[in-house]
Amino acid sequence: MTVSRPSSDRLRVGLDAAVREFVREPINVALLVVLPPVVITSYESMLSAFPRLPYMTTDPGALGATAGTLFVAAFLPAVIGLFQVISAQRADERLSLAGFPELALFVSRLGAVCLATLLTAALSLGVLATTTEVESLALGFLTLAFVGGLYGLIGMLIGTVLPRELEGSLVLIFVVDVDEALASGVIATDAAATKLFPLHYPHEVFQAAVDGTAPAASDVLAAATYGAIVLVATFLVYTALAATGGGGG
């Protein structure tokens, strides 16, 4: 009785289901709305108390607001990516065994993460714009959306290899916090290893958006390459571990 269905139909139904699941959890939406202003203003007020150290290129308060914006734009999608994978892992396995393509399943999960990413990026940029003059809003938004997508994928990756909510969340908090602290210049370091962290290049591009300068092509290219590598790695690991194909149903 079954016929071959176009994969676009499956993708649409899968994406629709993932988004519905996400928005029907009120705490998800509430956190997306509440956390950006809280985090950004907290970072700004905390760093405002810092003296302007010789290696700092901007005022500590403005630096805090920018760092808080990037932190929240990265962290929220990361946690959502983590929970997207963990909370539905066994049901996803059943769906995959029933014949749902792994690519469609991956894109469905990523779709819900992207929705959260766009919302967080817009809200974070809006909050930042109330305290700091952002010269290029379009570039700023694109960079924050990229950061959210990048860390959303990292959240999915961690959720796949470490399918535990508490431990996965702790790993993400630690990684995003250290990453942003190194990228923002709050800590003076020339260690080459800092360039391997996900936010290193996006931070440079975002700072250019805030300052109204043209971003360095090398930074944009490096960030895009980093994003492509993380996308491929997450897809491969997700399809190998999170969704198992088979002939059952």
């Binding site: 009785m1 079954t2 016929v3 071959s4 269905r5 139909d9 499956r10 139904v13 899968g14 289901a17 519905r20 699941e21 029907r24 959890e25 769906l95 995959s96 029933a98 014949g99 749902f100 149903g249």
Partner: peptide
């Protein structure tokens, strides 16, 4: 968080049903 109808739709797509 899916309804019963949505659950049928999702798994039906997986089985390749129209």
């Amino acid at each position: 968080r899916l309804t019963v109808e949505e659950t049928f739709r999702l798994f039906g797509e997986a089985y390749g049903m129209d």
